[in-house]
Amino acid sequence: MENKPGALARVVGLFHQRGYNIDSLHVDPITDFSPYSFIEKELSITFKADEISRLTIETTVSDSLMRQILRQINKLIEVLAVSNEKSTYLKGVLRDENLLR
């Protein structure tokens, strides 16, 4: 997500608002973009240092709720991409099998 004031609060607030629990949370600005070059490619953008943060959240939910959480997070304006071990959601780009249904 964009490394902007308030962006983290939107994600965390969403978890509480929708009744999901957070088991653990870690956030830091991204310095090495190589794992995220697919985002740059798909969205035709180039990241600069400290512009983007990576937020890692652990939560224990069913598969269908997980899908709902991913979609809700993806909807936040400042989020660029969200993924779990099975799916990746990118802004305006449908690359997930779930999305095609």
């Binding site: 997500m1 964009e2 969205l43 953008i45 304006i77 400042e78 989020v79 660029l80 802004k91 305006g92 780009v93 449908l94 095609l100």
Partner: peptide
Amino acid sequence: KIRSYNPPILPL
């Protein structure tokens, strides 16, 4: 233009 916001318009 907001790089992190591209709502869908046309269906697949």
